[in-house]
Structures are given as C-alpha cells and as structure tokens.
Computed example of a mutant assay.
Amino acid sequence: MDTVVVKFGGTSLATEKERKEAISHIGALRAEGKKVIAVVSAMGRKGSPYATDTLISLLKKDCDLATLDLLMSCGEVISACVLADSLVQQGIDAVALNSLQAGIVTDGVFGSADIFDIDTKRIKMELHENKVVVVTGFQGVTVRNDITTLGRGGSDTSAVVIGGFMDAESVHIFTDVPGVAVIDPRLVPKAKYMKEIDINLMYDLSRWGVGVVHPRAIAAAKNYTLDLFIRSTFDKGQGTRVVKDLKMKGPVGAGIIKNCGIFDVGRADKLIIDGEKKRAVRPVPDSGYSLLTVVFGEYNREEIREALGTLPVKAELFTSESCAHIFVETSQVESLANDLYDRLFE
C-alpha cells in the first residue's frame, strides 16, 4: 500500500466537530488502500489553552531556550494523543508518537531547528500493523535527546520531511481554506483558488505573505519526489497541487505582509527584496504600512512594470526577477488588492 502523510493545523483540531472532519479525510484515504501518517500542530490558536502562544505566555521572556522548547512541544503531544484516541473511538486503530518515539533527529538550534535524519523503523512497524500513525509536528530530538522546535510553521515542514523519508506518494497540508488563493480573499472576496502552482512560485508566495503553508516546507519539498497538496479540512476538494517544473507565465498570485518597513540590508536580515538595490523587509508593529507582492512567472522586470501599469494609490515600487513589491499605506491595501486582481487575474 502507498503511504500518504496528512498534516492538520490547530484550527482543524480545536473541537470534536473539527476533529471529526479531519478523521473523515483519514478514513477516505484508508478506504483507498493508503497507509496514513498524520502530523499534528497544537490545538486551537492564540488564547486556546493548549495553543503554542498560550504555552509561551507561561514563561518569562528571558527564559532558558531549552526549557521554552520543551514547554512548546507539549501542545503537539496533547494534539497527537487526542486525535489518536478520537480515531480509535471511530473504529480506526491508531497510535500517537512524539518526536523521540518517531525517530525525528534535529540539530541543536533551539527555536529554529532543522531535521537532518529520521529513524523510520517505529513508524514503519506501526503502519505494518495497519495503524494510523499520529506524529507530533513542529519538533524533534537532538543526539543528546534534547527537545527542539522548528520555529513557526514547523509542523508543515515536519510533514514534508517525514513524507520524504518515508517515500510517501503525497503530503496533504490541511488548513481552514480550500487551497491557495490568487490573493487574500479577506481583501478580495471573489478571489479564485488555484488548481495547481509551480513549486518555485509557491515558495515565493509563501515568503511574501501567503500564509497557508510555510516557506521552509516548500523548500523541503523540492528535495523529494512527492505530490504536495494544500487543502481544506472542511470540504472534500483536492485543493491546490504544488508541482515541480510547471510552466506558468505572467501574474501568478499575490501575498501581503502587514505592519512592516523597508530598510537597508543588515547581517541579520533574511527577507530581502533582491532588486536593483537590495532592501530588507522587517516587521514594525503598528507601522501603518504594508508590502503587497505580486509574483510573476517567466516575466522580466520590464514586463512586470508594464503589467502593473499605473497604480491607483500612492506607493513605492520595487521589482526583482520574479516579483513586484509594492510598499503602501495599510489603509490603501484593500483598494490596491482589488484593483490589481481586476487587472491581472480576472
């Protein structure tokens, strides 16, 4: 039987009703003859009792990083146990594994670790016994058996890397939206969802504000031969398929980063506009400014500028090889997003 990895985020696990939706997807895959590994995030969002941000609030800001990682890992352990028990209650044999039990080995960078090896023997044994294997996302164990976390969006990365080490046929990232939208539907309600997208363009979108999947997960997926889907827990659609070497020309989609600023590049900067002059993008709480980035396939800078035309709002424009970055007052973002959608994507 082929192996499939599914990942469920906090909003997909927060209540019994939502967990039943998640279980229905697992059941459907098993009915197709698939072996299923489920990777889970902590339940709920900020304010929920077991959400990662809630756990962080229990410690002081200057606490020991190893202690913080150990605490943060608890949310996923709770999720794994609850989902495994829920599966059993629905007649589906399941087992919950933490990162040590699952053999997930990371480096020693607390708060932003990378997975460099997985001893898959335990996972394979449980799958051989026809169980759904529920694994804690977002974390791993160093060679010294210290718990480390992977940073924000780490459960997405866990799912992809587990899928790679298990030679899975596909990884399905389940969220609360039905795939990757051309632009944020909260700003443009009529925005369409993509059936498929090239993996490199998806990486650009995820870096520049499309939050349905973390860019580290997309980068990891480039290393493996598996199908990657971004889907909704709450409908049966196949969502958006992320494809290698898919030819896409012209405007593909747009991402938005709110409350940010543009700066000269420093050593610590990671989010950099690689234009004629490199500029760094950094979070600035309550700055009143946002960055709207349109990602293009197979367009040069001149074609990008021509496609954008005259912007309807006062803004600063930066272009790179595949992106147009528009720095604009946050109050103008919705108007700009709707204008660009009508002209570029309709």
Rank of each mutant, 00 (worst) to 15 (best):
E18R: 14
D274E: 12
A22W: 00
Q238R: 06
E316K: 12
A217R: 04
T148C: 03
P189K: 09
S57C: 06
S99Y: 02
E32T: 00
K236I: 13
T233P: 07
S86D: 08
M202W: 10
D117P: 07
T52W: 10
S158L: 07
R45T: 15
D184R: 15
L87G: 05
A51V: 10
G154M: 13
G255D: 11
G297H: 12
G27F: 05
L340K: 15
M194N: 05
F318S: 11
M43Y: 04
Q90H: 14
S99T: 05
I197N: 03
L127Q: 01
E76A: 15
F229N: 01
M1V: 02
P215K: 12
Q90D: 14
F165I: 02
D62V: 10
P283L: 13
I56Q: 11
A38D: 00
K7L: 00
P189T: 08
H25Y: 00
T3Y: 00
V328G: 01
F229V: 01
E21G: 07
S322D: 10
K258Q: 12
L13K: 11
T233E: 05
V6L: 07
G44W: 10
Y50P: 06
G163A: 00
T330V: 10
S12Y: 09
M72K: 13
V177W: 03
P185S: 09
P189Y: 02
L58E: 03
D93F: 01
A96L: 03
L100A: 15
A22F: 05
R231W: 00
L201T: 13
I197K: 03
G297Y: 07
V160I: 12
G211R: 14
V328S: 08
S322A: 13
K124T: 01
G111N: 01
A191P: 09
R279M: 07
P285E: 11
D119V: 14
M194V: 06
I218T: 02
E329V: 11
S287R: 05
P185I: 09
E196N: 15
E346P: 13
N259Q: 10
K61M: 08
S206I: 03
D198L: 10
T52I: 06
V160H: 04
E306M: 11
G151Y: 11
A31C: 03
L71H: 01
G108R: 13
E169P: 00
A113C: 09
E32Q: 01
K277Y: 09
G103I: 01
E316N: 14
V284N: 08
G75E: 02
L71N: 01
F318G: 06
Q332S: 14
A51I: 08
P215E: 10
V105C: 09
G309P: 04
V161K: 02
T233M: 07
G10S: 08
I162R: 01
G137R: 02
N98G: 06
G153E: 08
V39R: 00
S57I: 05
M72V: 12
H128E: 15
G111V: 04
R19Y: 03
F174I: 01
S155F: 07
L311C: 13
E346T: 09
I304G: 12
A96D: 01
